[in-house]
């Protein structure tokens, strides 16, 4: 059978068979990272272009899903550093709270269900790329810490403290006065 195909058609099929089942997941992950459809499509597109010549390497990977997540994550971080973060960013480092496991503010709102989806998304967008990626991978998409030690190539202890810092920052931002603030000032 194989002989009937040209070499490139054969490669095409091998690549597509391996990668296709993961594209939805990769797109979703990208969307968590970037927060926009255009950027996610762009990122996944870029990933596939970079992976295509690495077919033989991909075929040798035992657990393809976390491996792909890793390549995607690195590409995302590289791209944002290149294009944006190293240049200009609105997020000031000083905004990062020091408190580690401080649950505190924002949580009641979360529990009571009064938090708008909008506000959560807004706060999520305020995190830096690393923090957003980490929460996306672990808290949202369910990669375990053990998996992420490999994916992100970071020791477990560091991973935990980063995770806690990201959550604390998210809660800290959520705890700020929501939209009602303006009305209050006016009265």
């Amino acid at each position: 059978m194989v002989n009937l195909w040209s070499n490139s058609a054969y490669n095409k099929n091998r690549f597509e068979n391996l990668v296709s089942p993961h594209i939805d997941h990769l797109y979703r992950l990208s969307y968590r990272f970037t927060g926009s459809r255009e950027d996610s499509e762009d990122l996944v597109q870029d990933l596939l272009v970079k992976l295509y010549p690495r077919l033989e390497e991909i075929e040798a990977i035992e657990k393809l899903k976390p491996w792909l997540a890793q390549v995607l994550y690195r590409l995302f971080i590289d791209r944002t550093r290149q294009h944006k973060r190293s240049v200009l960013s609105v997020v000031e480092d000083s905004m990062e709270p020091d408190s580690q496991l401080d649950g505190g503010a924002g949580t009641e709102e979360l529990a009571a269900g009064t938090l708008t989806r909008e506000r959560l998304q807004e706060s999520f967008a305020v995190l830096n790329e690393d923090q957003r990626a980490l929460l996306s991978l672990h808290d949202i998409e369910g990669y375990t810490l053990a998996e992420l030690v490999d994916v992100l190539d970071v020791p477990l202890g560091t991973l935990k403290s980063r995770l806690n810092r990201s959550r604390a920052k998210l809660r800290e931002h959520l705890s700020r006065e929501p939209f009602v603030e303006n009305q209050r000032v006016n009265r």
Binding site: K12, S20, I23, E41, L48, V49, L51
Partner: peptide
């Protein structure tokens, strides 16, 4: 999107 992206990679 998936099909188009795969084709583009190729």
């Amino acid at each position: 999107f998936a099909q188009a992206a795969l084709r583009q990679a190729r």
